[in-house]
Simulated scan of single mutants.
Amino acid sequence: MAVHGTVAAGFEGVCEEFASFLEREEHDPGAQLVVYRGGERVVDLWSAGVTAESLLAVFSSTKGAMALVAALLVQDGVLDLDRTVASYWPEFAGRGKDGITLREVLAHRAGLVGIDRGFTREELADDRRIAELLADQRPFWQPGQFFGYHGYVIGALVGEVIVRATGRTLQEWYEERIRAPYGLDLWLGLPESEEPRFLSTLPMLTTPEQQAELDAAPYSRFSLGGIAFNEHAPDAVELEEFVNARPVRAKGQASCGGIGSARGLAGMYAAAAFGLDGRAPLLEPNTAAEFARIHSAGTDLVSDSVKQFGLGFNTIAGSFASVAAGSFGHSGAAGSLAFADPRQGFAYAYTRRRYAYPGGAAPENAGLLWSVARALR
């Protein structure tokens, strides 16, 4: 499969690894890969199934934009991590939620992974409606004592705190402070004018062995995992189809409704950690360190697997040995991965159009990251 794009001198090995991965693939994944060294873009590659300007669903990589908005407002003194959510949003206090702090929400410790009846498709596209329904929901575990991935709802919870504190939505803050100033191709609310560049997510392709593995591990749709991914709802939608619906893209659901490119994702993290276009980094070192610091580690009650979270961000170093401690970013269900590594001085973003087996950051990220690490050395 053809590789398109450019790499700076010294990063030829990244292009070779990207080409090697594509050669092993039977079907073009529609992949994009971008790396910044500090504020300089040094890798800009894509496969034949997309262009550099194609806009793809980035699923939970959206949470990185959500977390960055929260970090900026904490840095500004507008939000306080250790204030209770109810002190901003009084309706939230009922059903044992009065002591939950913003820090616990961002660390996936609130116990509010969904609602008892499940969300309708229309509700799941709308952060304000999600928040309204969660305000009347009892937690699924003692808040603060355990953690579990708030996959569909963390953006709505954080977003409602932001609305109550500032009178403006998370999406409005993102557009004004982050996307528009840098011209980033990462949207929380895709305008109609940009729709022609959007390429819908393609379904996962599996071998018989892979499908057997997926089928061998069924779980109840009423388990914590089923509730967190809304599989118990009467009109449940498959995650891979979620952002193929225009209302989700238009509203910019802040947990997993973002639309963008690898250029947009990598540019956001470069701006956050290193600065772009001669500007200072968006995040001060202390802010970046606090949001990257591990707040939740161990068994995630939703996925029943070992995970680590900072505040809103994944702690990427826990999943990839070539990534330094203190890195911050997020992965997405179709295979995307994007983050900043302040210690090694780079920002990375990988996206793909075809849903990757088995979900989450696609397996090829490991090899691509090793090639980046070698180039940096």
Rank of each mutant, 00 (worst) to 15 (best):
V243P: 01
W173K: 01
F291G: 04
A135G: 09
V105S: 02
L276W: 01
G111L: 10
N230G: 04
I154T: 07
P139A: 02
A288T: 00
A8P: 01
D136S: 13
E364K: 13
I162L: 04
V237E: 15
A31C: 13
N244S: 01
L205R: 15
T206C: 14
R168W: 02
R177S: 02
G183A: 06
P203A: 12
E53L: 07
A228G: 08
S20Y: 00
I294E: 13
A317C: 13
P191W: 11
G226K: 07
T166P: 06
P218T: 07
R221T: 15
R179I: 00
G5F: 02
V74G: 09
A180C: 04
E17G: 07
E26W: 12
A2T: 13
R263T: 03
V323H: 05
G310D: 08
V43C: 05
V78C: 06
G64Q: 10
D215V: 00
A236G: 08
A135D: 04
Q142E: 15
G5C: 06
F346S: 05
N314Q: 14
R37H: 13
G326P: 10
F11T: 04
R279M: 10
Q145K: 15
R353G: 07
A375N: 08
A70Y: 03
L170Y: 03
G318F: 10
V306P: 00
W46N: 02
E160M: 06
A48Q: 14
R352I: 12
P234D: 11
G167V: 14
E290K: 06
I115F: 00
D136G: 02
L265F: 10
Y88A: 05
E123P: 06
C15I: 00
F339V: 10
L224H: 12
G49V: 11
I130H: 00
A125K: 11
G111W: 02
A217D: 14
V78G: 08
A297R: 15
E91I: 02
L369M: 14
A107Y: 03
P358R: 15
S200R: 15
D300R: 13
G77S: 05
R117W: 02
G64E: 11
G77P: 02
D80W: 09
A375S: 15
E122L: 14
L134C: 07
P191G: 10
D28T: 09
G38N: 10
F229K: 09
L56F: 06
V3L: 03
L224C: 09
A317D: 15
T351E: 05
L73A: 05
V14C: 05
A86Y: 01
S296V: 04
E40M: 03
L133W: 01
S261E: 02
E104L: 09
K307P: 01
A292H: 07
A324N: 12
A67F: 06
A8N: 05
S327T: 08
F309Q: 09
R95K: 15
E91A: 14
R109T: 11
A216Y: 00
F21W: 15
V158R: 00
A325P: 07
M1V: 12
L134K: 06
E213A: 14
W141F: 12
M1E: 05
W89Q: 07
V69N: 02
V43S: 07
R352T: 11
E104N: 07
G183W: 04
V58C: 14
F92E: 02
G310N: 11
W141H: 01
A52M: 01
R293Q: 12
V323E: 07
E364I: 12
D82I: 03
A334M: 08
E12F: 03
E40W: 02
D185W: 04
L239Y: 12
E195Y: 05
T351F: 03
R121M: 13
